[in-house]
Nucleic acid binder design. Structure first.
Length: 588
RNA sequence: GCGGGAGUAGUUCAGCUGGUUAGAACGCUGCCCUGUCACGGCAGAGGUCGCGGGUUCGAAUCCCGUCUCUCGCGCCA
């Protein structure tokens, strides 16, 4: 028998009555009645109440152990009397009558309590992460995370993917995020970089003929954090497939995501959108939702009303339209009877956000109301297509600004009126991203996403179309307004790549210098291939219903990319720096 | 780099327009308590009010600077 335990803290019941058992765990709460003492003993699996009588010789010793000390208890399983049964505990029908106990590890006074769910400051929680991880919420989040990862792994293998490992010490990539650099001792003055993603490696594995690759891949990017963006490192379900079109990629991963969400959702009321998921072209997403990561739980839709206002008497809009602006509108049902303050509040909010205001028209009892209504004639008003009790809010600006701000308005009104359907996971693909865009600073053409994506229409498009009109086989998967990943069908033909880079201002030489490995590989027989890489941390965030990514990572860094527990990053001894040939300079 | 919020006991927080000795809860220490499950009761210890400067007879409170945490923007192909 195991020296420390015969059973787990979750598994004893009336079936075990009168058995002598050994349990080990943490003293979660200790209730000392002077001549009677209860200990809730906790392990990874559950809690079991242990009791000792004041007459027992170990009583005084056990009454001094302190919360979170680790103890081993030997005792007998006894039935609780009817009035002392605890229905909140799985083991609440029984308790352990302590006969012997051993203090395995004494705990000092705690810097934060483990046995309560009260919110605590992050600095303390991160510094004592091992204590925070003992607490209910984090403990179950991390268990959920590991369940999700293991489910993903099983499903990917089941549908024929092969799991790989790719290098952590690799070379710096010229495009994209800042790299984390690692100095080389052997090659003084040279650096490895940690991979931002195993992008090139997975493509090389396709070229190597492995057909279907996946990896729960660590990715490293030296960029500033957000609530949903962990600084430094994060994980992706990175996958890639050979001999596929965009639809083949979607068809492969949709069931995996659907099942992972459906099998790990918090309660059975939650509905996961059925696959195939909606496919929304990038431009349509900006038009209808004002975002390239729309939250489809929000029922509001943005429509275009430029033509209604174009020749109207509402000069504020019609003058702007003449200068090239557009008018967007959002119809909101059952709001015509909202008090004036509702509309004023939104208008004030819009002004605070930097907009000129938020005009509106309401329709009820066959009458159009609101400050703009009197400027439109009957034809124009009926073109709004308002139903009884509807209101419509207008945004007028240059196209891109109007789209973005309409997106904010859509979100704001949804929050104000609590229109979000919280019991659902709404997936969609955003497809047909533009291949190129204009860099606003330099006015030059640049790649809008991954430069290795295949342009739709391939060489023909690059040679004949306006570059800004060319779409790429580039797609994002979005769930509840969270961008889970982007992916693409890759460009596997060197001549198309030379041409695409040429349009973005890179010479053949530039390309060969920067991406020689990849480019070289494409010259020796590369299959058409593509894939994607949904973010694991964000999937867990959604399923755990956590607003902050640190709540689903066992050992996260703080916003400043510091590990407060391990004290990283840290200064390095002079000797080590010398060995690496590194001299620090004082930037101040 | 820029903007918002925060920083008071080990912890979570209160502390008004400046005014005696800066409070509460949890935790901690001691005593009492045989059926609790956030056990209860009594007593006690514990604070450079982030740091520096200023205004004032007097600053946790007002002003300036600075540091730290956090949220957002930039950034993240």
């Amino acid at each position: 028998m195991n020296n420390y335990r015969s059973h787990l803290c979750s598994e004893l019941s009336l079936d075990n009555l009168n058995q002598k058992v050994i349990l080990s765990g943490w003293a979660d709460t200790i209730r000392d009645h002077g001549n009677l003492l209860f200990i809730d003993l906790r392990d990874n699996y559950g809690i079991t109440q242990c009791v000792i009588d004041g007459k027992h010789e170990l009583f005084s010793e056990i009454s001094n152990i302190g919360n979170e000390s680790v103890i081993k208890v030997i005792g007998t399983v006894v039935k609780r009397s009817d009035e002392t049964i605890n229905k909140n505990l799985k083991t609440g029908d029984i308790e352990i009558k302590i006969e012997e106990f051993e203090l395995l590890s004494k705990a000092n006074t705690l810097p934060l309590p483990v046995n309560s769910d009260i919110e605590y400051g992050e600095e303390v929680r991160l510094k004592y992460r091992f204590l925070d991880l003992r607490r209910n919420k984090l403990h179950s989040n991390i268990l959920l995370r590991n369940k999700i990862i293991s489910d993903i792994r099983k499903k990917m293998i089941n549908i024929g993917f092969t799991e790989f490992q790719t290098p952590i010490l690799t070379s710096s990539s010229p495009e994209g995020a800042r790299d984390y650099l690692v100095p080389s001792r052997i090659h003084q003055g040279k650096f490895y970089a940690l991979p931002q993603a195993p992008q090139q490696f997975k493509q090389l594995l396709m070229i190597a003929g492995f057909d279907k690759y996946f990896q729960i891949a660590p990715c490293f990017r030296d960029e500033d954090s957000r609530a949903d963006r962990s600084p430094g490192e994060f994980y992706q379900l990175d996958f890639e497939m050979s001999f596929v079109t965009q639809d083949d990629v979607f068809n492969a991963i949709e069931p995996v995501l659907y099942e992972v969400f459906n099998e790990n959702k918090k309660n059975t009321n939650i509905k996961v959108s059925d696959y195939p998921f909606k496919r929304i072209p990038y431009n349509e997403s900006l038009e209808k939702y004002g975002s390239d990561k729309p939250d489809l739980r929000n029922p509001l839709i943005i429509l275009d009303y430029t033509s209604v206002f174009q020749n109207s008497n509402f000069k504020i809009f019609s003058n702007q339209i003449e200068k090239g602006a557009v008018v967007k509108g959002i119809i909101v049902k059952n709001t015509a009877n909202q008090p004036r303050s509702f509309f004023d509040k939104l208008n004030n909010w819009a002004r605070e956000e930097g907009a000129a205001g938020l005009g509106y028209i309401s329709f009820s009892d066959n009458k159009f109301k609101g400050p703009i209504a009197k400027n439109l004639n009957d034809d124009q008003l009926s073109a709004l297509k308002l139903g009884e009790n509807d209101s419509i809010f207008f945004i007028c600006d240059e196209l891109k600004q109007a789209q973005i701000f309409s997106g904010y308005v859509r979100e704001k009104i949804c929050i104000e009126l609590s229109l979000l359907n919280k019991d659902s996971f709404e997936f969609c693909w955003i497809v047909d991203f533009p291949m190129f865009e204009i860099d606003e600073k330099t006015n030059k053409l640049q790649f809008s996403h991954n430069p290795f994506s295949m342009p739709q229409g391939e060489m023909n498009s690059l040679e004949t179309m306006d570059p800004l009109e060319i779409k790429a086989f580039q797609y994002d998967i979005v769930c509840n307004g969270v961008e889970l990943s982007s992916g693409a069908i890759r460009n596997h033909k060197p001549e198309i790549m030379y041409k695409a880079f040429e349009l973005a201002g890179y010479s053949k030489d530039d390309l060969e210098k920067k991406f020689s490995g990849m480019l070289n590989a494409l010259k020796f027989g590369a299959p058409p291939h593509g894939g994607s890489a949904p973010g694991i941390d964000r999937i867990v965030m959604l399923l755990a219903d956590e607003p902050n990514i640190r709540e689903v990572i066992a050992f996260p860094m703080n916003q400043q990319a510091m590990d407060l527990m391990m004290d990283a990053p840290a200064k390095i001894d002079k000797e080590r720096l010398e060995e690496l040939g590194i001299k620090l300079i004082d930037k101040n």
